[in-house]
Design a protein around this nucleic acid. Structure first.
Lengths: 367, 367
DNA sequence: TAACAGTTTGAATCCAACG
DNA sequence: GCGTTGGATTCAAACTGTT
């Protein structure tokens, strides 16, 4: 259902519809100072070279869409400046914007935001619980994306539902790093052939937290890179009005079908942000990094065997090196060994199990 | 102890010392292409907040302060461009840089890095396990800082000790988000009055991971914003040479005292898990030459395919001949194949991977 | 049905030595 | 310098098929 509101400029605001076209042109045709929140997932300008294969030789399905290609950093910057300017015009004085990106583009976007007069409130890290690994072992697993939250200008009275977010976070204030899984399973839209309908569909849990935290029911949320409509879907569930802009027909079609099925106040949608808490895994190497054990220091087995700690958190014994578990198993001639309970270190003449140090770290993490 | 090395430019590199002065001037006085790694913790430019004054000391009109904000950003950008340029000149061709910052400055730094020709390898999130809460409840708890890791240029062969980092992380590859506590307790340097000696002292655990991951023992590490010397302290422990630049005398003094107390770890402890790529290459033909496999002998694939060994160390299958890798890839219809782990031979009725023979040869080479 | 094993997949700037 | 070739490289979660 589409409704319209009258704005100060007397232009109609096409609420709860997907607009077809280039986002800059479309935004320039909408009334100024009319939108409460903008959520933008612009092209990341990935610069992929050749193909990438997994160790099992299967090929990675890369983001090689034409809309992600830019000729140069300069071209990407011009595009970014243009859409950010058009977006800022639409925002109400106390409106705000979220932009998501990766290291390929987010630094340019952040600088452009500041240059355009936006005022950064936080950068928020989406920590992926199940990221794609680095298959060639040449870099760190790319396990996060960055979101920037900014008001229209310094001093604006932006919306921040502190208590709602605190409630979402088991009673403690929400941090700038959010652990949320990738969009997979039933939530991931498929096309007729069963392939993913959009290469970079964002999880609803992410938008849920954004919209609960920085909008109120009845607010107008605009997404200039609507894609398959995650922003619209979550806005609708949460009773916000939304406007999408998307120039690819296939995406508009998928988003339209998706949005028709969405119901306001869907229970499931409210549950998506609930996360389970497990005992955090503590790598032994952290004890070394944190100086709780020093490289070169000796560890002692129950039967008096000795191994030395190395800088990378492995142990070296008489004729064996490896993890605390591997070296323990080797010394005992056992198939496996829990190094945490097996090894001890010495402090002030006393012998102390290393597991004590792990518990210290866990206590810190929970605090 | 100070030592110096002769560089191609015949200028002395003042190793393991703290240099007094403006980092740009000092860096410009050091020899080009002489440093393996730069770790930089530049000023965050927080003085953009609060009252803004023009150079003539008149106060900025709050109504249209965008121009002045932009001017301030411009000044910060010029500073950033200048020190990044000076730093890049110092880097060896395969050198790399790490820069740490917060949302106040990191976007400008990241864009400047890209503009200066650096090639971003990862952005890494330092996730603080014990961040300062947001007291006013107006924003998210600022619980992280961002680090950018970049090589001198695209295609450079940067150092990445993948296996060591994997070992530090309990056997799974290191991700781009690192959970490390703030620098507190006995590690936090205090001045004579008992106040913290430096407002933003970084934890040694952070530098430990950076240096283990992206340098080797004996490398030269430079920190142009040395502060109280965390970079130097960890570099010294890990057997890396270091150079610090710091213009505040109080920080230099604190760092000097700190570094005098630091002890290098045992040589054995600095040995770190190595990649298989570092192992010596063994031509398959050697197995034939040495009589470990005989020409005409059959090798078996996991799925029962057979190929015969030829006198020159190539294989011949049903409709293909070539190296162990080429024939394996062809039989699997795969883009590539590691023939060493793919093929087996038979001895006394048992099926044995040919990689066992390679390991025998490598063991002999070491003896 | 439930438990278990094997398969698939996700915004990726993903090789290096040798001839 | 560049083309060729050897051979190293993956984690979590959802899904599919079998017992």
């Amino acid at each position: 259902m589409t409704k319209t509101k009258t704005t100060p400029s007397a232009q109609a605001l096409p609420l709860n519809t997907i607009l077809d076209g280039d986002c800059i042109e479309v935004m320039n045709g909408l009334p100024a100072n009319s939108v409460d929140l903008i959520f933008a997932d612009p092209p990341y300008n990935l610069q992929l070279r050749g193909d990438l294969h997994r160790p099992d030789n299967s090929q990675v399905d890369a983001v090689d869409d034409h809309w992600d290609q830019f000729a140069s950093f300069e071209a990407y910057d011009r595009f970014t400046q243009d859409w950010l300017k058009a977006a800022r015009r639409l925002l109400k004085p106390n409106g705000a914007i979220w932009v998501i990106g990766s290291y390929h583009n987010i630094f340019r976007v952040g600088a452009a935001l500041q240059n355009a007069g936006y005022w950064i409130l936080n950068d928020v890290i989406w920590r992926k619980s199940n990221p794609m690994p680095n298959f060639r072992g040449k870099r760190f697993t790319n396990a996060h994306e960055t979101m920037i939250w900014a008001s229209k200008e310094e001093g604006a009275k932006y919306t921040f539902n502190y208590e709602a977010l605190k409630a979402l976070n088991e009673g403690v204030q929400m941090r700038s790093d959010w652990v949320i899984p990738l969009c997979t399973g039933h939530e991931r839209l498929k096309d007729e052939k069963g392939d993913k309908a959009h290469p970079t569909q964002k999880p609803e849990a992410l938008l849920h937290r954004v919209l609960v935290g920085s909008t109120n029911p009845g607010d107008v949320v605009l997404d200039p890179f609507f894609g398959t409509g995650t922003t619209g879907a979550v806005a609708k569930m949460l009773g916000r009005d939304w406007i999408g802009i998307e120039r690819e027909e296939a995406y508009r079609k998928a988003a339209t079908a998706r949005l028709a099925k969405v119901r306001k106040f869907d229970r499931e949608a409210l549950q998506v942000s609930a996360s389970k808490r497990a005992e955090p895994r503590v790598p032994f190497g952290q004890l070394v990094e944190r100086g709780m054990l020093r490289p070169g220091e000796a560890l002692y087995s129950p039967r008096g065997k000795i191994a030395k700690v190395r800088a990378d958190g492995t142990l070296i014994g008489e004729d064996v090196k490896g993890s605390i578990h591997q070296v323990g198993a080797h010394l005992e001639g056992a198939p496996s060994c829990n190094g945490w309970t097996y090894w001890c270190f010495k402090r002030d003449g006393k012998t102390v199990p290393i597991d004590v140090l792990r518990q210290q770290i866990r206590a810190e993490m929970q605090a």
